[in-house]
Simulated assay, not measured.
Amino acid sequence: MIGLAGLAFAGPALAAEGQAHRDYILRCAGCHGMEGLGSVEGGIPTFPGSVGKIAADDMGRTYMMHVPGVISASLDDAGIASVMNYILDRWSPGEAAPFTPDEVTRRRAVPVADVVVMRRDVAKKLMSEGTQIADYPWP
């Protein structure tokens, strides 16, 4: 059992995790669902068994910062890092390094002409390395 002193010490970390969870619900769950399963019909890839593999790849990390839901999330870079880390912790614990706000800023500044083409390039690269990720049914 955590005493009051333990709660005071853990408070900011628990509050940040709670905010990331709320931001996930408000900004991500509409497409990816509460279980991170996405939708084949909607062209939304699933998180389990996939998101950590993408985040473990340099090009994959840049791709993640350009998906439509991240671009339109109306969060600052620290908020995006927090939500991305919530997603990684929930569906791929230990598979990839956490995002930092500085990394989010840097990767969002990289020009990406077509995020669908970039997703295909990431998938092709990972597959050539023997890493399978979730299907992406977009043309």
Rank of each mutant, 00 (worst) to 15 (best):
G30E: 10
D102E: 15
D23M: 14
L37M: 14
I44S: 01
P137Q: 05
A16T: 13
P101S: 10
A13V: 03
V83L: 08
G79V: 12
E35D: 15
A5K: 09
G94W: 00
G52W: 08
P45A: 05
A113F: 06
A10D: 11
L4C: 08
A15C: 04
A56H: 08
G38R: 05
A73K: 03
I54N: 07
A20Y: 05
A15Q: 08
C28Q: 08
M65F: 12
G18H: 10
L4P: 07
A55R: 02
S128E: 14
K124Q: 13
R22Q: 14
P45I: 05
G130L: 05
P101E: 07
V104E: 00
D89A: 15
M64D: 04
I71Y: 11
V40Y: 09
L7S: 05
V83N: 05
D89H: 07
R120M: 10
P137L: 11
T62R: 11
P48T: 01
K124G: 09
S82A: 14
N85P: 10
D135C: 03
D102C: 01
H66P: 02
C31I: 10
V115M: 03
S82D: 15
R108M: 06
T105Q: 12
Q19G: 11
A96L: 03
S92A: 15
P137S: 09
I71D: 08
R120W: 09
V67S: 03
K53V: 11
D114K: 01
S92P: 00
I25K: 12
S128C: 02
D89W: 01
I2G: 03
L14P: 08
S74C: 10
T131L: 03
E103N: 04
G33H: 12
A123S: 15
L88S: 05
D57P: 07
R106D: 09
D58L: 13
E129M: 07
C28R: 08
S128G: 09
P48W: 05
M65I: 06
V110Y: 00
E17T: 13
V51E: 03
R27S: 11
I25Q: 15
F9A: 14
R120F: 14
L88W: 02
I133Q: 01
G38Y: 06
A10H: 11
A8G: 05
I80V: 15
G49Q: 06
S82V: 03
G42P: 01
A97R: 02
Q132A: 06
E103F: 01
G36M: 05
S39V: 10
S39L: 09
R61P: 09
G36N: 08
